[in-house]
Nucleic acid binder design. Structure first.
Lengths: 217, 217
DNA sequence: AGATAATTCAAACATTTGTTTGACACGTCA
DNA sequence: TGACGTGTCAAACAAATGTTTGAATTATCT
């Protein structure tokens, strides 16, 4: 079964990347265990032996997918941090909005979020990588915003709890999407809904933070 | 391999139930696909053929586990609804507290929550059952509380959004437990922490609801 | 006790699946 | 041109796994 002539050298060295893309899809759809290297290779247009040749085995491919995913997401969403000149209320809104954008990123690789979701219920070494490279930086950024809004130090006990209260409202629509869709079948997640959602969460959170504000000093 | 003599007739008719218990554990630990009927039967002290004999096949066993789980939870947590004589603020606190108790139920069947978690990332027919039998009733109860706090009708658009903001803070510690543990390794989930958490979420939510209150009429 | 149905058991079957193998194609460089 | 390294391919291998089977065991009822 020979492919057509064009794109010879081009596709040649791309097998590895196509495997990563296909693996990302399949792992996200089926999970590590249920995903088969046969399907991955088929979707990548590669031979069954390609995975073992390029990555060693299925598990090494899985870990490599996360590095690849993280790298691609960095290209897609370069900034998100550093806007310290804005008032903290605006910063919080920007944070929430950006987080929702990432979560519902329908772009060319919507499997990033799904893969992370799977790591939640069944953590592997990949989750340590994700937390260290992705979640902790975001979390610390949010802490700074929250601490400023509360008027306390970042190390204060109230900061992580209130941060969780904010983040939880965002990730909820990702984690519990299946339930939300069953409870409210008409709910959509287009850009307009996302903006409204960010608005709601910001309003709710800013008000929710108030009783935790440090006493004037 | 003969077992010892005592508990003959007792264990005999229990094979089916022991299979359900063991299946609940294994499905929760490994997921539907990765769970093997061999391990389930081994943990239940039954023969490999027991699953097919008592339930038909692995998938029917899986669905039966959810019915069994739901039934057991109803025995464990009978009430949770109906306390309309209390002020809505107290009702909200009771709801949040009860939800956290359920989520972190360490009792004789801590796999209920894990199983639900897996259904989130990979919904099957079981999720429809759960939503209809378990989640929707709880959700509607919360709607009534929220509507009363907001001073609006249950059908108002603000009600489901604000409800999600409340529920999300509770289920977050279940869904993102793996991340929370990595960010805050010292965090525990004993009874005392749970009470404090319920306190926090209630305080945050009651304040968060304020700007959404209907204008006086 | 004896017949009948229900249940359990060890073994085998058929399929799936990750991995390996050895041959083949292609480009590079001496 | 010829040797060599890289990448690809079809086929096969070995292990795991859901399911089936037919005999053995146990319970139930007359």
């Amino acid at each position: 079964m020979k492919l057509n002539v064009p794109a010879i050298a081009a596709e040649q060295a791309q097998t590895r990347q196509q495997l990563l893309e296909a693996a990302g899809e399949v792992f996200a759809e089926r999970g590590f265990r249920s995903a088969t290297v046969r399907e991955i290779c088929q979707r990548a247009g590669a031979n069954i032996a390609a995975v073992n040749y390029h990555f060693g085995d299925k598990e090494k491919l899985y870990l490599e997918v996360f590095r690849y995913s993280q790298q691609k997401e960095l290209e897609r969403f370069p900034q998100l941090r550093k806007s310290a000149d804005l008032p903290p209320e605006k910063q919080l809104h920007a944070f929430i909005s950006a987080l929702l954008q990432r979560i519902f990123n329908k772009g060319d690789a919507s499997w990033h979020g799904l893969l992370m979701l799977r790591e939640m219920t069944e953590p592997t070494a990949a989750l340590d990588f994700i937390v260290a490279e992705k979640i902790r930086p975001m979390s610390e950024h949010l802490w700074e915003i929250i601490a400023e809004l509360l008027g306390c130090r970042v190390e204060d006990d109230r900061v992580p709890r209130c941060s969780f209260s904010v983040v939880s409202q965002c990730v909820f629509y990702c984690h519990s999407r299946a339930v939300v869709e069953r409870l409210h079948p008409d709910q959509t997640f287009d850009q307009k809904s996302l903006d409204e959602l960010a608005e709601h969460i910001t309003k709710f959170s800013l008000a929710g933070l108030k009783p935790f504000r440090a006493v004037k000093k």
